[in-house]
């Protein structure tokens, strides 16, 4: 992704995808948040949903001619200032390793680091919630230390439990409910991220920050 202009493409007539140019970074993501907030107020827009340095815009009703909307998005992007991180900081207590983190051995093998180093590197940063997606309440996080990056698993796990803390490539995240995943599970937390009976149903939203705390490390 080395373009200097944002790319806009269609997902049929259901939505369009706006992709910011340049290397993936927090500043770009903060501009995406601004853009999404702006676009959400437009009448033809159903939902404006931040992705990872990109944004999905679903149509309330697809316009006869989408070009004016695209031009408006591009103008709004040029004008978008980075929205500051002003969300809540949520601390998650994590049990690392053991049954809670069945793939930590693979992360150790790939990185060559000791389990305590992995836990130290994983608990060090504050992780901004870039986006919500994948499944109800799931947070895409930025800011993981590259030293603990581990490739996705060759064979996905069919039923990763909710609360699983995992690493997939350069990203880390926490499953919000049971489901399949190709990521490496290194620990688990009991935090509930999604409750459909609450308003809003998600514990976190883009701009909030997650901090992992080692409750226990099973070596």
């Amino acid at each position: 992704m080395t373009q200097t202009e944002p790319q806009v493409s269609f997902l049929g007539t259901t939505a369009l995808l706006f992709e910011a140019p340049g290397e993936m970074c927090l500043i770009t993501q903060q501009r995406i948040w601004s853009l999404a907030r702006e676009a959400q107020s437009w009448p033809e827009v159903g939902e404006a949903i931040p992705g990872m340095n990109n944004m999905l815009v679903s149509f309330a009703d697809p316009p006869t001619n989408p070009t004016p909307l695209i031009m408006r998005l591009q103008d709004a992007w040029r004008a978008a200032r980075p929205m500051p991180l002003q969300g809540r900081l949520v601390a998650l207590d994590v049990i690392y390793g053991g049954d809670a983190g069945p793939h930590i051995g693979d992360v150790i093998a790939h990185t060559g680091l000791a389990i305590d180093d992995i836990v130290a590197l994983h608990t060090a940063p504050d992780y901004p919630v870039y986006a919500i997606g994948s499944h109800p309440g799931y947070c895409y996080l930025g800011g993981m230390d590259r030293r603990i990056a581990t490739p996705r698993r060759q064979v996905p796990v069919l039923r990763l439990p909710g609360g699983a803390v995992s690493i997939g490539g350069l990203q880390t995240g926490v499953s919000a409910s049971d489901g399949p995943s190709g990521w490496n599970t290194i620990g688990s937390t009991s935090m509930v991220f999604f409750d459909a009976t609450l308003s809003p149903p998600c514990l976190l939203q883009p701009g909030d920050v997650i901090r992992f705390r080692a409750e226990r490390v099973i070596r």
């Binding site: 049929g12 992709e19 949903i49 992705g51 990872m52 997606g133 499944h135």
Partner: peptide, 26 residues
């Protein structure tokens, strides 16, 4: 990068065999 998708999107994983996302797609 991870991005929003909708039912109907035809994804092509490494195998080169397409997968059309349907109603229960993430």
């Amino acid at each position: 990068r991870s991005h929003g998708i909708v039912p109907g999107v035809i994804q092509v994983p490494h195998s080169g065999q397409p997968i059309v996302q349907m109603r229960d797609a993430q």
